[in-house]
């Protein structure tokens, strides 16, 4: 692409990444969550793919696959945290520790330190969705690289 598109993409990609991280991080307080934030981050990968071409991103294919597997493993491990009672038990909610602040019932301004395992699961699923969709887009762009471009 031309230099204008490349410059604008260099400016706008960090903003997209920050917005995706915000959507994932506040998934238990505001509309959003792991899936939506992961899709936003994957759109940043798609923008990079369109602007810089698939050749420069080809080296990151294995990294994306690794991140997706890491997200899946983290999700299942977080589900196994509550195996003392049952699978997917929210052990951290209300315990007073990490993400364990008790929530005042009713409408409140929203506190980041609540939710138990939900924010951690949001991060795991966000990582998984972002890496998965990014690798799908990258694979579709990389297919038959020689004669298409």
């Amino acid at each position: 692409m031309s230099v204008v598109v490349r410059t604008i993409a260099r400016i706008i990609v960090p903003m997209i990444l920050a917005f995706g991280a915000y959507v994932i991080m506040h998934g238990h307080l505001t509309p959003g969550g792991g899936f939506q934030g992961g899709a936003v981050i994957a759109s940043a990968i798609a923008l990079l793919l369109v602007v810089f071409g698939s050749g420069r991103l080809a080296g990151h294919k294995n990294l994306l696959s690794l991140l997706e597997d890491l997200g899946a493993i983290a999700f299942v491990a977080l589900a196994f945290l509550g195996i003392g009672c049952t699978f997917f038990r929210n052990v951290l909610a209300g315990s007073g520790g990490l993400f364990g602040m008790p929530v005042p019932p009713g409408p409140n301004p929203g506190f980041l330190n609540t939710g138990g395992t939900l924010p951690l699961m949001n991060w795991a699923v966000g990582l998984k969705v972002a890496a998965g969709l990014g690798s799908v887009v990258l694979l579709l762009g990389l297919f038959g690289g020689g004669d298409d471009r």
Binding site: H28, L29, G33, N90, F99, M101, T114, G116, L118
Partner: peptide, 14 residues
Amino acid sequence: EAGANNVVTSVVFD
């Protein structure tokens, strides 16, 4: 029970 303001997230993940 789930400690989250977003009920949809607590349904999805909990």
